[in-house]
Simulated assay, not measured.
Amino acid sequence: MSRTNIAFCASTADTAQEALVALNARYGSVPQDEADVIVALGGDGFMLQTLHATQHLVAPVYGMNRGTVGFLMNSYHEDDLGDRLAEAMEEVINPLEMRAITAAGETHEALAINEVSLLRAGPQAAKLRIYVDGKLRLDELVCDGALVATPAGSTAYNYSAHGPIIPIGSDVLALTAMSAFRPRRWRGALLPKRAEVRIEVRDHLKRPVMADADSRSVRDVVSVEIKSASDVEHRILFDPGHGLEERLIREQFV
């Protein structure tokens, strides 16, 4: 596929801004709504921001790493960008949909490409009640928090919390606890992608909890519903041999 019309965007980091100037001068840039491809310059956080900001557009996003880890990014090289874009392989991922209800009765909705997490917001551990597809699965989880992660996000916060790495293409979500105190040995669960998870906060006044969807936070939540947004697709481009599937496998042998 020819991707001749490029829209460049960059994080505020100095290295990303320098790359933006160099690439604009070399290849030119068009508005995002006229682009065949959007090239994001930055780290994984900026890639998530770009995917969210451009989800209404047809153009896929190709990231080049001007950040730190760069799990969702390709390596940065200024040469032969047109050839790299023409040869790039596409991955399509569905985000999670979060619907959070606060103690004040407000409803907040957001999409998360990596994970939706619930985190204690006070000195005491959170107490959470977990339902899957309307069925009570865990009456009380005493913990620092819990999260639901997509395969694409399984190597991020989920992996740091000792959750499993999930292969891309798996119709599976990870439900992972953070510092679970009770049940002592509960390590989480793997759920079908179609599953709908509802997490209720017990004793929310004494043990406040915040919810977060890809760094968009809601405080004082009393319940959070999480499910895969199958009607939303994010298209990400990777250099051949360096797609998400290869990265997920490689991450497990580091």
Rank of each mutant, 00 (worst) to 15 (best):
D144S: 05
A112T: 12
L136W: 01
T68A: 13
L147D: 00
D139H: 02
A161G: 05
R66E: 10
V142A: 02
S75D: 15
I113S: 05
D144H: 02
E109N: 14
H108M: 09
G67I: 06
A112G: 14
R129H: 00
D139M: 01
G153R: 13
D171F: 08
T155V: 14
E106A: 13
A104P: 00
T176N: 15
D139I: 02
A100L: 05
I165E: 05
V92D: 04
V69P: 04
A103M: 11
A174Y: 11
M89N: 15
E115M: 07
P164R: 05
R120W: 02
I93E: 08
L119Y: 08
L138K: 07
P164L: 06
P123G: 13
K135M: 10
R99Q: 14
G70I: 10
L96C: 00
R84Y: 07
T102G: 04
D83K: 10
D139E: 08
I130G: 01
A161R: 04
M98I: 04
L119H: 12
I168Q: 08
Y131P: 00
T176G: 11
A152K: 07
N74C: 06
I101T: 15
V92M: 10
A104E: 14
V69W: 08
G67H: 04
M98Y: 02
P151A: 15
E115A: 03
L175P: 13
H108T: 15
V142D: 00
K127S: 10
H162W: 05
I168R: 06
Y76C: 01
R129K: 08
A100C: 08
P164D: 07
